[in-house]
Simulated assay, not measured.
Amino acid sequence: LVFIETVGNPTLRIPPIDDIIKICGQEGCTVVVDNTFATPVIYRPVEAGADMVVESMTKYIGGHNDVLGGLLCSNHIKLKESIWEWRKLTGTIIQPLDAYLVARGLKTLHLRVKYSSKAAMEIAKWLADRPEVVKVHYPGLPDHPDHSIASRLFDGLYGGVVSFEIKGGAVAAKKFLNALKTIVPAPSLGGTESIATYPYESSHRNLSEEEKRKLEITPGLIRLSVGLENVEDLIADMENALKTSQG
Rank of each mutant, 00 (worst) to 15 (best):
V2Y: 15
V7H: 04
P10F: 02
I14L: 13
I14H: 07
P15Q: 07
I17E: 09
K22F: 01
K22S: 08
G25V: 00
E27I: 06
V31T: 13
V32W: 12
D34S: 07
T36W: 05
A38W: 05
T39A: 04
T39I: 02
I42E: 02
Y43K: 12
R44N: 08
R44D: 07
P45I: 00
V46I: 15
A50L: 12
V53E: 14
M57L: 15
I61D: 08
I61T: 15
I61N: 09
H64M: 11
D66R: 12
V67A: 04
G69T: 15
N75R: 14
K78L: 13
S82I: 11
R87F: 00
T90H: 06
G91R: 02
I93C: 01
Q95L: 06
D98G: 08
A99D: 15
Y100P: 00
Y100C: 08
G105V: 12
L109T: 13
V113D: 14
V113W: 11
K114T: 10
K114R: 12
S116Q: 10
A119I: 07
E122G: 15
I123S: 10
A124Q: 09
A128Y: 01
D129G: 06
E132K: 00
V133M: 01
V133P: 00
V134G: 01
V134C: 02
V136A: 12
Y138C: 04
P139Q: 12
G140C: 02
H144V: 07
H144K: 05
S148D: 14
S148K: 13
I149A: 02
R152V: 00
L153Y: 02
L153M: 06
F154H: 09
D155N: 14
G159D: 01
V161Y: 01
S163G: 13
F164C: 10
F164S: 09
G168R: 04
G168I: 03
G168C: 05
A170N: 09
A172P: 03
K174R: 15
K174C: 06
K174W: 14
F176S: 01
F176I: 03
K181S: 10
T182K: 14
I183T: 10
V184Q: 05
P185Y: 06
S188Y: 11
L189H: 13
T192L: 06
Y198C: 05
P199C: 11
E201H: 11
E201I: 13
S203H: 11
R205M: 10
N206E: 11
N206R: 12
E209A: 03
E210V: 07
K212A: 03
L215D: 06
E216W: 06
I217A: 13
T218H: 09
T218I: 03
G220N: 02
L221G: 08
I222S: 05
I222G: 02
S225Q: 03
M238S: 10
E239K: 15
N240Q: 14
A241L: 05
L242V: 04
